[in-house]
């Protein structure tokens, strides 16, 4: 399209041309076949675009309305399993949490003390038993000394006995 009126044609079709220019264009179209053809083509295109691009349905609206989709097999299958998967994940998280926040590990000496706690509770009874068996006072008992050395060390043992 070489005619300089081309842009006026577009504007006229789109109702953007003022009245004076519209009249001028009409007069021009009567004498120019090329512009006449262009005008009908552009008008055809605009009408085509306006009509064919209209949506077939205007959906109902509402603020709470959300789109629900029909999922395929995977969506339905995993949809059913959702609670089970959630439970498994929770249990795993709990286990990992327990491991992380568990009490700090004890040194060998501390472990030995913990193991001997029950034994220390019955210390009085045990000491009396040893005295009866050995026929000697508790502080000189070799068995008693041995046990305390294992658990507390010499210093604590002597302190304890005094």
């Amino acid at each position: 399209m070489r005619c300089p009126r081309c842009k006026d044609i577009y504007l006229s079709v789109l109702d953007e041309l003022d009245a004076g220019a519209e009249e001028e264009l009409k007069t021009h179209l009567e004498s120019c076949d090329e512009c006449k053809k262009e005008y009908s083509e552009v008008q055809g295109l605009v009408n085509y675009l306006r009509v064919k691009t209209l949506p077939d349905i205007i959906p109902a609206h509402g603020p709470q309305k959300a789109i629900k989709r029909d999922g395929g097999f995977f969506v339905r299958f995993f949809g059913v399993l959702k609670p089970a998967v959630a439970m498994i994940i929770l249990v795993l998280l709990f286990a990992v949490g327990l491991q992380l926040f568990h009490q700090p590990s004890l040194s060998p000496e501390e472990k030995e003390v913990v193991e001997n706690m029950e034994f220390l509770k019955d210390l009085d009874v045990l000491e009396k038993l040893v005295q009866i068996v050995d026929g000697t006072p508790g502080e000189h008992s070799s068995i008693c000394r041995k046990h305390f050395r294992m658990a507390w060390g010499d210093e604590i043992y002597s302190e304890f006995l005094s």
């Binding site: 064919k52 077939d56 349905i57 959906p59 109902a60 309305k65 789109i67 629900k68 989709r69 029909d70 999922g71 395929g72 097999f73 995977f74 969506v75």
Partner: peptide, 24 residues
């Protein structure tokens, strides 16, 4: 992979009409 995602908010128009429209 997870289905065609058809929407329940829309009622489908007739298939032929729909196809012609979609092609355009």
């Amino acid at each position: 992979w997870f289905g065609n995602g058809s929407n329940k908010n829309f009622i489908e128009p007739s298939q032929v009409e729909n196809l012609a429209r979609k092609e355009e």
